[in-house]
């Protein structure tokens, strides 16, 4: 009876957006009289940071400070259609729609600035701090506030834009499964080290080393939140959770969090992450979406590590202490 250290490795990829496409998202962007922008979406922020990441995308595209952008979500009267927040599609699909809308609004703002400065709009650039100036001559400038104001009150132009992003739906060949799945994929490789107690069947001291390739980390802190939280969920799926522990029998079903067991704060794995960024050609600033992929690798990695630790194949989830002990008994006669 002893504790055994084991290592499991995994490599996965993940499709970004609804398989086969056909899932449009739309964005409306408009400026108030002082050059502060509202992005109106029907998209949903589930806590993952949809509002924040689309806000950064809008600010970058408009060329204004991020504080000059506010994102309003989740209203079917004010936001144009969006398929929804699932399938790792939010950043990619909604982000692209926001870029398209923000470009239109920016063009109106720059056209007004050009009239104010008596230059061609193509000679102008934004500094991201609230100023529009002539390329190579930063002293010839107008603020984004004054430009947006002039557009609305002097020139009668609406500083606004609309955008949609759609990948048209693919067919599927019935016989071969040929299809256009999605346009880009995120990637991950992971190594999990853990300890298995062959007397209690318990897993402990989980250490995760991972490398995620996610196109571009549009906000590194939101990225970290997703990856750490997702790995926790993956560990929970691997070793704890099920609504039907006696599957396919429906006996012993849990009805609350005292019987539906999940790892607590003390069970959080040590997780060291590396981020790789290979921009997706059609992603917003190259961004893909890490929201789902981050849970997937942990499940097989834990199973592979348990095999490495105690030499039993566990091919049924979750890998509970009971399952480990039964496998030890059956496969090793322990």
């Amino acid at each position: 009876m002893a504790k055994h250290r084991g290592r499991g490795t995994v490599a996965v990829n993940y499709p970004i957006g609804m398989n086969l496409g056909g899932d449009p998202s739309q964005a409306l962007v408009h400026s108030n009289p002082e050059g502060q922008f509202t992005v109106a979406l029907s998209s949903i922020d589930l806590g993952q940071g949809m509002k924040s990441v689309t806000r950064q995308i809008a600010a970058e595209t408009l060329g204004v400070p991020v504080g000059h952008v506010y994102v309003d979500t989740a209203d079917s009267d004010t936001g144009a259609q969006c398929m929804g927040s699932f399938a790792s599609r939010g950043t990619h699909r909604v982000g692209n729609a926001v870029i398209a809308a923000a470009k239109e609004a920016r063009a109106v703002m720059l056209a007004a600035a050009a009239r104010e400065l008596e230059v061609n709009p193509t000679d102008l650039e934004t500094d991201g701090l609230g100023n529009i100036h002539v390329k190579g001559a930063p002293q010839r400038s107008v603020t984004t506030k004054d430009a947006a104001n002039a557009a609305q009150f002097k020139y009668g132009e609406s500083v606004s834009g609309s955008g949609i992003f759609l990948i048209p739906m693919s067919d599927v060949d019935v016989e071969t499964g040929e299809m256009n799945t999605v346009s880009c994929f995120a990637h991950c490789a992971m190594i999990v080290d853990l300890t298995v107690d062959d007397k209690t069947g318990e897993i402990s001291d989980v250490q995760i080393n991972s490398a995620y390739e996610i196109g571009r980390a549009l906000n590194p802190k939101l990225m970290e939140q997703q990856l750490v939280g997702g790995a926790w969920m993956g560990l929970s799926h691997a070793a704890y959770e099920t609504t039907e522990p006696a599957y396919p029998s429906r006996d012993h079903r849990p009805f609350d969090f005292s019987s539906y067991v999940m790892p607590g704060p003390g069970d959080l794995a040590q997780h060291d992450i590396a981020i790789l960024e290979r921009p997706a050609p059609d992603g917003p600033f190259g961004g893909k979406g890490p929201g789902e992929m981050c849970a997937n690798p942990v499940l097989p990695a834990v199973a592979n590590a348990v095999f490495d630790a105690v030499g039993v194949e566990i091919d049924t989830l979750p890998i509970t202490p009971e399952r480990i002990l039964r496998a030890l008994k059956e496969q090793r006669g322990a």
């Binding site: 922020d45 509002k51 970058e60 906000n219």
Partner: peptide, 11 residues
Amino acid sequence: NVVGKPIRRQD
């Protein structure tokens, strides 16, 4: 300017 930065969440 903004993309790639650890900007505080709007909400």
